[in-house]
Simulated assay, not measured.
Amino acid sequence: MPSPSDYDVWLFDLDGTLVDTEWSYTREVFDRVGDRMGTQFSDREAEVLWHGLGGSRNVQLREWGFDPPAFWDAFHEIEDPQARAEATYLYDDAAYVADLDAPVGVVTHCQEFLADPVLDALDVRDWFDVVLCCDDDTGWKPDPRPLELALGDVGADPDHDAVYAGDAASDVGAAMNAGLDAVHVERHAPEKRGHCVLGDHRVESFDDLFDARAE
């Protein structure tokens, strides 16, 4: 297992990695999106799409017969930034991030209008030297470009030893495509995901990752 001193830069995913949202909020969002689209999302479908358990959300939507642009338009119209912030909590083991003595960044698919209120409500914005919210211009994980942009924003060059930690297969893919070490934090049982995600390091909690330095 690595220790914090093993890397010059630490990058993290946000949703499902450092923070998560109360199920009641998630369920309400999918109920409202379903009403807007004239369909219903099961609990399983909502969980898979919210956490990206099936891999690419757009691919999953198409497999289930949903139009991705229509889904995302409805999703972003319905989500209320303040309500989401109030329903979002910080994982206990994310506290390690505040103590990292290196440049630290977030690279997330969460849109800026949603991510900003969450970071402010949880009072963790000052943990990060850069927050990059992916869009069509930056590209989407597992494309490496968002990670490369974040590294550039903190002044890191290709020779820096950097790592990216996330809970999804796309996070591990982005890290590998960018030439970074990948930490997969498994917040869900593999049977829910339907497969294992294998990074350079695979942990169930950041306790497993950071406490290893004391052994």
Rank of each mutant, 00 (worst) to 15 (best):
C110S: 14
Y91D: 11
A87L: 03
P117C: 02
T138K: 03
L132A: 12
D136G: 05
P142A: 01
L49T: 08
A212Y: 08
D208N: 03
E191V: 11
F206Q: 06
N58W: 05
D159P: 01
Y164A: 07
V124H: 04
A46C: 07
Q111K: 15
V154G: 05
F128L: 08
V197L: 04
L209W: 13
V97N: 12
T138L: 04
E22Y: 01
D101M: 00
V107D: 02
E79Q: 15
E22F: 00
W50V: 05
T88C: 12
E63L: 07
L209K: 09
L49E: 07
W140L: 11
E215V: 08
I78R: 01
E47V: 10
V185C: 09
A178Y: 10
A214P: 00
R36H: 14
H51G: 02
H188Y: 14
D167R: 03
P117Y: 03
I78A: 08
L49Q: 14
G52Y: 04
R213D: 06
V172C: 05
V33H: 13
G54C: 05
T88G: 13
L90W: 07
P2Q: 01
G16S: 05
L149H: 11
L53I: 00
S56Q: 11
Y91P: 05
V33W: 07
A121I: 02
D80Q: 13
L53N: 10
E77N: 06
Q40A: 12
A98G: 09
E148P: 02
P2N: 05
H109N: 07
G52F: 08
Q60C: 06
P142Q: 10
